[in-house]
């Protein structure tokens, strides 16, 4: 396959794709010193190795990449050759625009994607939190070759197809990264991994789909596993954690009840109050009063 290099603003092939900064296949035949120093990335970069062996520093970790490996570098992460040069070999390179919402710890993909908004958020969140830079992903090769022929041939419907291929690629990356992050054999440790994520962001309106995606399962299988393992449905298990945290906050006098409700993921103080009372017999206010009385 011949090399090619398309760049936003220079290559008319990318006119229809504002979100693609760069797309190409590079064959590197010689080693040139200082050809690949470490620098910080602005966009999502995806590399797929088809030939050769590369030693890179990605996000301050030394990685060795072989054919079939895919590297994902997120905005703000560093990338470069371990020896500051590019090794001999062939690879696809794809750069995508994406906004990082630091406050939410989320990567926001653009509106070009036909994923639903919640899927987009989940995929972005998975990329941010799993923190896995190198994935074993042979499927990525086929997708990238197909994208190449769509972009270069520009047959009817190509812009839709390219975006669909991009979505597919990102979905595969998210799934594979979850599979690599969790052991498919060890539900307790996978569940502990999820539990940690839930506790870290209790205020977030978690859905079953999102929780399932975080451990790389479909919602049906996920719900069944959680039910067997914990005795609760995923959402009821989440309520356990929420109420436990709320109790701790209620015992501290300096946070008001509405704030506690929101911090622990209840969408209103009314919803908080009803759930709390149903479980404990006290409204949050009564619970707090009882605790002051004890003092």
């Amino acid at each position: 396959m011949n090399q090619f290099a398309l760049q936003q603003g220079h290559s008319h092939e990318l006119d229809m794709f504002d979100h693609i900064v760069e797309f190409g296949l590079t064959k590197n035949g010689t080693i040139q010193l200082e050809s690949f120093p470490i620098s910080t990335c602005d966009h999502i970069r995806i590399y797929y190795i088809t030939d050769g062996k590369f030693e890179w520093m990605i996000n301050q970790k030394h990685q060795i990449l072989y054919p079939g490996d895919l590297a994902v570098v997120l905005p703000g992460q560093e990338l470069g050759g371990s020896n500051r040069y590019l090794d001999i070999g062939t690879f696809f390179k794809l750069q995508l625009k994406a906004e990082v919402l630091e406050s939410m710890g989320v990567i926001q993909l653009g509106t070009w994607s036909s994923l639903t908004e919640s899927e987009r958020i989940t995929v972005g969140r998975i990329l941010m939190t799993n923190n896995i830079s190198v994935l074993k992903m042979k499927e990525a090769g086929d997708i990238l070759y197909e994208m190449r022929s769509e972009v270069l041939n520009q047959e009817i419907g190509y812009s839709t197809r390219v975006n669909v291929l991009l979505d597919t690629l990102l979905i595969f990356i998210a799934r594979q990264s979850t599979r690599q992050a969790t052991s498919r054999r060890d539900f307790p440790s996978t569940f502990a991994f999820l539990e940690q994520a839930l506790r870290k962001n209790l205020a977030h309106q978690w859905t079953v789909e999102e929780m399932a995606a975080r451990v790389g399962l479909g919602t049906t299988a996920f719900t069944e596993k959680v039910k067997t393992y914990t005795g609760f449905s995923p959402l009821n298990y989440l309520i356990n954690i929420r109420i436990s945290e709320a109790i701790k906050l209620l015992k501290k006098q300096d946070i008001n009840v509405t704030q506690i409700a929101l911090d622990t993921g209840f969408y209103s103080s009314q919803h908080f109050s009803t759930t709390f009372k149903k479980l404990t017999g006290y409204t949050p206010g009564e619970f707090r009063k009882r605790n002051i009385a004890a003092k």
Partner: peptide
Amino acid sequence: QDPEQIFITMLYVLK
């Protein structure tokens, strides 16, 4: 282990 979560889980299951 978190004593509050144990308590809440116990209450929930009992209920």
